[in-house]
Design a protein around this nucleic acid. Sequence first.
DNA 1: GCGAAGTTTGCAGTCTGTGAAAGGTTTTCC
DNA 2: GGAAAACCTTTCACAGACTGCAAACTTCGC
Lengths: 244, 244
Amino acid sequence: MTVTSPAPVGTVPAQPPPAPPEVPPPVSLRERKKRATRRSLRRVALELVAERGFPHVTVEDIAATADVSPRTFFNYFPTKEAALFGMDPDRMAGLRAAIVDAVPGAPAFDAVRAVMTGAARGMAEDLRDLGGNPADWLRWMKAARTDPHLRAAQAAQMAQLERTVAEALAQRLRADAERDPYPGMLAAVAVAMVRSGVIFWSNSGGAMALELYVDRAFGALKDGLPEDSQLRHVDGNVTEGKGI
Amino acid sequence: MTVTSPAPVGTVPAQPPPAPPEVPPPVSLRERKKRATRRSLRRVALELVAERGFPHVTVEDIAATADVSPRTFFNYFPTKEAALFGMDPDRMAGLRAAIVDAVPGAPAFDAVRAVMTGAARGMAEDLRDLGGNPADWLRWMKAARTDPHLRAAQAAQMAQLERTVAEALAQRLRADAERDPYPGMLAAVAVAMVRSGVIFWSNSGGAMALELYVDRAFGALKDGLPEDSQLRHVDGNVTEGKGI
DNA sequence: GCGAAGTTTGCAGTCTGTGAAAGGTTTTCC
DNA sequence: GGAAAACCTTTCACAGACTGCAAACTTCGC
């Protein structure tokens, strides 16, 4: 898996990140049922929260709508919030592996950029899979930014993601995460760029693919976060003269 | 507010950020009591959690130890977590104002760097004020990074800080936070740098002032997060050859 | 088939967080 | 000074998140 060709440096635009190692065989009945249940709970949770708001949906509601007992809900998700934001463990593990192995020899920044961009695509796909129309998710994302409860929940989730990324980076760089600030900093920044991408993707009404926004955010970062990057022009609406 | 003087660019190192507008007169008895209660609750919460771990401390414990009713606890903090990590609203407002007004005309990056560095000093002072010996907080900070509960709580708190910073930046730049990604991105990155600073400050055993770590993190960021920055050498332990 | 292994469920109980109303303090204004 | 107003704390009652446990049920591997 070692790439001998000169590592592509500079912009690594949405390069199909080494597809997370597909899990090919083990799809037993049991496994399929579990996945179905998980997905069902997630879908229902999303729907109910979208229409009533987080505080007005109880776990009992979700469970009932998904036709399982409330106790089962907690077999799948540790908290009510997790049903909304939780990445499933498999995907998380895939992400981790991808960061460790992606484009060996390339700078960590570029590797993490490529991987996070790919992860963004994955998230968008998940959303699509979950059904519901785009208008729904956009409304939903807005809620996630508005409602304090949801904000907190999302933050917690992002923190977990960040930790995973940081650990993977430390491994990639053979660094001691306790002593070396670099992996943690890079992880923090990378996750921040993903969040930014998501926000502006949803603000733009999902005009372009999510991954493009995320990749752009990384680009802007690499350029030193210039106050007048192309990001300013997201929807062709060039604003200017914003002070220095 | 278009600035005509050549904007000071480059490092703006730990310039005493325009001291948050001191609240000079209104220290009525009532106000003093409230502050005492808040501080007491906070201190007790910290202590108990430090010695027993977050899940083994109930709000009832905290309230009892602080000699108030459990209901009163919730008059001060919306959640159990908030007692541990919550910045008080005054300080938050001060921060916001500082970002809007700091070093008028300077690039937003430099302004936010200066203000966040100052905020870091404030945090360190708060910790000192709260009493307990340094060893205690260091142990505490470690716990905050280790325990999943605490991590989540801290993340939620940081999200709130980030939002405040983003709004302040938008105001400073006269940007529309909905359309313009820049304030949000910069805020995300700035808060990430503060967190990094805190982490490495605590890892280093509080050797140098917290603000220095935070300022360094900003410096590293400005230099494009080079994989071999001086940050690598935090404790004189130069590690090398970390892949590209 | 059949036992092992894994899942779902009901139950009982703890803890967080909130509204409402009553009882105390502090403040404000004659 | 002293009362009325404003503000805080407390008590009570309650909804809802979450957990441990043991019984009932499915799926798996042979």
